[in-house]
Simulated scan of single mutants.
Amino acid sequence: MILVNAANGNQGKFLIPRLLRAGATVRACVRSEAAASGLSAAGVAEVVVGDIGEPDIIARAVRGVDKVYHVCPTMHPLEREIGFGMIDAARAEGVKHFVLGSVLHPHLTALVQHEIKRDIEEHLIASDLPFTILQPAIYMLPLKLKPAFEQGRYTVAWSPERIQSLVDIGDVAEVVAIVLTHSDDHLAATYELSGAERLTAHDMARIIGAVIGQTIPVEEIDVETFLHALFGDRDRSSLDHQVRAVRSLNTCYSAHDFVGNANVLRWLLGREPRTPASRSATSSVNDKGPRTAMLPSPMLDAFPRPWQARRGRRPCT
């Protein structure tokens, strides 16, 4: 059985259907009964409902599973403690494969969330658990593109001139499913997951504008506006961790580019990663329209991918 944490989150919504189609038996961990009902109806075998920040929920979630995919809910104030607790519980249960959803460049510790994920990576490596670490770049999410389609503007809370690497969340979910269902091929690996294009906010606005046929202006919003968009009028004193995390994003992403390399993702997928243009085209029709075709890359033939051969694909020669 495979445990998927935060199963109703951004990644879980893409990952769970892939695992079920692959024939995996899945236990999901979510916060609400409503989410649990939807997952059960979709074919998830078991659902644990509760706050993953509570040790007893972690223990219930991990008990009896063979594999764990751990990705913490975004900006959870107890992310470090949850990560440590999941790893310790998995070790006590004798879990055979622990897959950690981390972040690209976790050693950039001026970023609050990166420092936490670096610490969790270290704890996992030191645990002697069989592990795989996945380090995705900034997600291309339909939710992030929605304002551009609805309001005709592309907003960022940092310098729009800075260059960034993005990764399609569907591609990340595909890699997670590959790693979890073909564990032996991926043990002790740390994979950077990045798309091929390196873009500024102005580039992104041009891509979206080309998809919907209009000029999309770029608007740099200040941190307070961004915080209000995320958390509304909630008391900032109750959001100390989240506020520090957002401020660190603003500072670091304004001061430095944030880029990765697509070679590892190409190899894992056996094709070119999805692009912002293909994600924008999909998002413009509520994620139900056709995607841009994903073509194989010639360089991939030099690097065998045994899990693809076992799935019935032509092995590389």
Rank of each mutant, 00 (worst) to 15 (best):
D185W: 05
K144P: 00
T181Y: 07
D168E: 12
S280R: 03
D51V: 06
E174Y: 00
A188S: 14
K96E: 14
A302W: 12
A24D: 09
N8S: 15
M86D: 07
R271N: 03
Q11P: 02
I16Y: 00
Y191P: 01
G38H: 07
S283M: 08
F303M: 11
S127Q: 04
S183P: 14
I208D: 02
T132I: 01
G260R: 00
T200Q: 08
T225Q: 15
S248F: 07
F231R: 06
A61E: 06
A157P: 13
K288R: 14
P147G: 03
D301W: 11
S280D: 04
H256S: 14
I120N: 03
R63E: 12
D233Q: 03
Q164T: 09
V172I: 12
I163L: 13
I208W: 07
T251R: 14
I120M: 01
S127P: 10
P106W: 01
I207C: 01
V103D: 04
R244E: 10
L19I: 05
S32L: 07
Q11V: 15
A89D: 09
S159I: 04
L104I: 06
D235F: 00
V103H: 06
T74R: 11
R31K: 11
D257L: 00
Y253K: 02
L104W: 06
L20S: 07
N5D: 05
T181L: 13
I2Q: 04
R31N: 08
V211W: 07
D235T: 00
L249F: 15
P106N: 04
E219L: 11
A126F: 03
P273T: 09
F303G: 02
R266S: 01
V47P: 06
R311F: 08
I116F: 10
R236P: 11
D240C: 00
A22H: 05
E219P: 02
N5G: 10
I82K: 01
G85M: 08
E122G: 04
G270C: 06
A281I: 13
R21T: 14
A148C: 00
T317Q: 13
N5V: 12
A90I: 04
S280P: 06
D301I: 11
T109M: 09
R118K: 13
K67C: 13
W267G: 07
R31I: 04
L78D: 15
K144C: 08
E219M: 08
H97T: 08
L249V: 14
D171W: 02
Q113W: 15
M1Q: 13
V246T: 10
V259C: 12
A293C: 03
A28F: 11
F258W: 11
I138Q: 09
V95M: 07
Q135Y: 02
R18H: 06
F131K: 00
P147C: 05
T74K: 08
V176A: 03
P276S: 02
V218G: 03
V259G: 01
R234C: 01
H241S: 02
Y139M: 08
H228E: 05
P306Q: 06
L239S: 07
H123I: 01
L19Q: 05
L143R: 08
G85I: 09
S102Y: 08
R63K: 14
A188I: 00
I138G: 01
A201I: 05
L39A: 03
H123M: 01
L111N: 08
K288T: 13
M140G: 00
A201G: 05
H241G: 00
L100Q: 13
A262F: 05
A41C: 01
R206P: 00
V112D: 13
S297E: 15
L141H: 00
D168T: 04
P77F: 10
